[in-house]
Design a protein around this nucleic acid. Structure first.
Lengths: 141, 141
DNA sequence: TTTACACTTGCGAATAATTCTCATAATGAA
DNA sequence: TTCATTATGAGAATTATTCGCAAGTGTAAA
């Protein structure tokens, strides 16, 4: 059993504990998410999941993604002009650069910006619950 | 003729010059946008525009908004969980705080953050064409 | 292991926001 | 005023996502 498999085992145990059933479809989608190095959308996740477990539908992919999002296991991103894209919540917080030409998504993070965001919100009497920050960029040449 | 009317007059002249026809619907929507102190969505803009010019349809509102967006006259914002919301591009650049409880939108801007964004992108070999930054907040108490 | 039942699934229909089609109407240059 | 061109309204089409329901499947308990 690899480290990654172990991670899924723990996850499924946690889910089961929360009264959520661990089905073939859910395990398959979880492993697809675990292996994804990019930011796939639901349709793409369905395609990849079908390779492991053919008995999956788009509706179940969406349902499971919502479930996992609510459980804090995946993050959903709605970039401009396109469907929502997903990634595991295992990495530490980051924001995204979207390459306008290739559609590629690059991750970055800046503690300085986060701090400034909190300061600005605080000045206006708010606490930041979460934020969205995307830089739509072009390669410099 | 008020200052605001003058602004619209200039706008319509510019549009006409660009080969865009200045119709009753467009004038009405422009004046609604000019008077809007908030961030209305298309449906709300339709409702307000109908008060001035009853012969307007939702399709035309959307078409005109796209036109104005392309002309740089209005900005479109797609906040989480809802339809797109619009505002005139006359004010200087700013980002938004969304009050999670009331749905209210507050504007803010931070040159420091913008500068950091540019630095981060530059380090990765990118130029920022535009960005999206929203802070989803709750009132502190 | 078998049972029993609540939870899940696949399918297709339903929704919601937005865009498109097309016949008709209105704009604006001459 | 004319007339070619562009814009409009109404509703159909699209896209991403969710929902409803009948049938299937995990799971805790027996």
């Amino acid at each position: 059993m690899t480290l990654a498999d172990d991670k899924i085992a723990k996850l499924t145990a946690a889910l089961r504990n929360a009264g959520v059933r661990v089905t073939r479809q859910r395990i398959a989608l979880l492993s697809v998410l675990r292996d994804a190095k990019d930011h796939p959308d639901a349709e793409e996740l369905l395609k990849r999941t079908k390779l492991i477990e053919p008995a999956v539908s788009l509706a179940t992919v969406y349902r499971t993604l919502s479930l996992l999002e609510a459980a804090g296991v995946v993050h959903r991103h709605s970039f401009e002009g396109g469907s929502a894209r997903f990634e595991t919540a295992t990495k530490k917080h980051h924001d995204h650069i979207v390459d306008l030409d290739s559609g590629e998504v690059i991750e970055f993070n800046s503690d300085k910006i986060e701090q400034l965001q909190n300061e600005i919100a605080a000045q206006l009497g708010f606490d930041v619950i979460h934020h969205r920050m995307e830089l739509y960029c072009r390669k410099r040449r």
